[in-house]
């Protein structure tokens, strides 16, 4: 099972202010460091029109980081493909795959904020149809990089599985749900007569034993997700999280139940279970605005030392 790390978002948040030109220069240093630690890949995320500058074009940022590295792969979890013109999106993806020497893993998702669609003249309720059209354009293009589809809605699983695409399952799944989704994907692929694509998953992660913030890390992640989910997630189709603290708490509880936080052996054991469930690639999210920096590096270094093979896979 390949092991990547994420998620670089290039934000300057209320919790963790950052000078953006400096953050973009640091991205290249971070990529070098991730490569040196021996991880398989480094993952970036996408959103547009955020107060904190969340990188709206991570493929462009990846092109820069690729110039600082030679082996490391780069992934997106996720690019919000329905928000882009399908043909232009396919060209940019192929170009970044080209300038990186074929080191791109293209993770694509739907996007969830009405305002992001509205700002570029699109309807959010057409995102599924746009996803299908974009996916077909992408897979028909020459030099198409490996595709990983995000999400777990039945339509998303079927859409991707029937095309033999890979998947990136969300970080909030319980182990039995992972098994269920892997089975669903394989069944759809089989009934379409295609080989099932590889299965990836995101996991919020912290390996304890390396730094002074071990005991705070749950609270830090909670603060991160409370701001994001409270402000921008739509719960029950009609409320922001902050408008419905009860729903928000329930959502956050799921986040913490499913995060991999603990000493190296515990995290390893969870990863072995994921591998047994059929997961081919796990992207561990150590890197949040609020955890980024020396403490996250210490935790990642400890993990790399204990768990990584020279090929960037789980030992």
């Amino acid at each position: 099972m390949r092991i990547g790390v994420g998620l670089w978002t290039l934000q300057s948040t209320q919790s963790a202010p950052s000078n953006l030109p400096r953050a973009y220069a640091a991205l290249r240093d971070d990529a070098r460091r991730v490569e040196k630690l021996g991880f398989d890949s480094m993952w970036l995320a996408e959103h547009r029109f955020w107060y904190d500058g969340w990188c709206p074009q991570p493929l462009v940022a990846i092109a820069a980081a690729a110039g600082a590295t030679s082996r490391l792969r780069f992934g997106t979890a996720m690019l919000l493909m329905p928000q882009h013109d399908p043909a232009a999106f396919a060209r940019l993806a192929a170009s970044v795959a080209g300038v990186s020497g074929g080191r791109l893993d293209l993770g694509i998702g739907l996007g969830h904020r009405d305002a992001e669609f509205d700002g570029v003249g699109l309807r959010r309720d057409q995102r599924g149809a746009r996803m299908t059209a974009g996916l077909d354009a992408l897979m028909a293009s020459q030099d198409c990089p490996p595709i990983w589809i995000g999400g777990m809605a039945p339509a998303a699983l079927e859409r991707g599985a029937r095309r033999g695409a890979g998947f990136v399952l969300p970080q909030t799944l319980y182990p039995d749900e992972v098994v269920k989704h892997v089975t669903t994907i394989r069944t759809h692929a089989e009934s379409a007569g295609v080989a099932p694509g590889p299965i990836g998953i995101l996991k919020d992660c912290w390996v304890t034993g390396a730094g002074p913030i071990d005991s705070d890390v749950r609270a830090l992640m909670q603060r991160h997700y409370r701001e994001e989910a409270g402000s921008w997630w739509v719960l029950k189709g009609e409320h922001t999280g902050f408008q419905r603290p009860d729903l928000l708490d329930r959502q956050l509880q799921r986040v913490f139940d499913t995060a991999l936080i603990g000493p190296p052996d515990d995290v390893m054991a969870s990863l072995v279970d994921l591998r047994a469930a059929g997961v081919d690639l796990t992207t561990l999210r150590f890197w949040f605005d609020i955890t980024a920096g020396p403490n996250a590096w210490a935790s990642m270094e400890l993990f790399a030392r204990e768990a990584l093979s020279p090929a960037g896979t789980l030992r």
């Binding site: 029109f49 904020r113 009405d114 305002a115 669609f117 509205d118 700002g119 570029v120 003249g121 699109l122 309807r123 959010r124 309720d125 057409q126 921008w232 739509v234 009609e238 922001t240």
Partner: peptide, 13 residues
């Protein structure tokens, strides 16, 4: 920009 399309209703700008 923004388009303020009728179908986009939640938290639009």
């Amino acid at each position: 920009t923004p388009a303020n399309l009728a179908q986009n209703v939640f938290n639009v700008e």
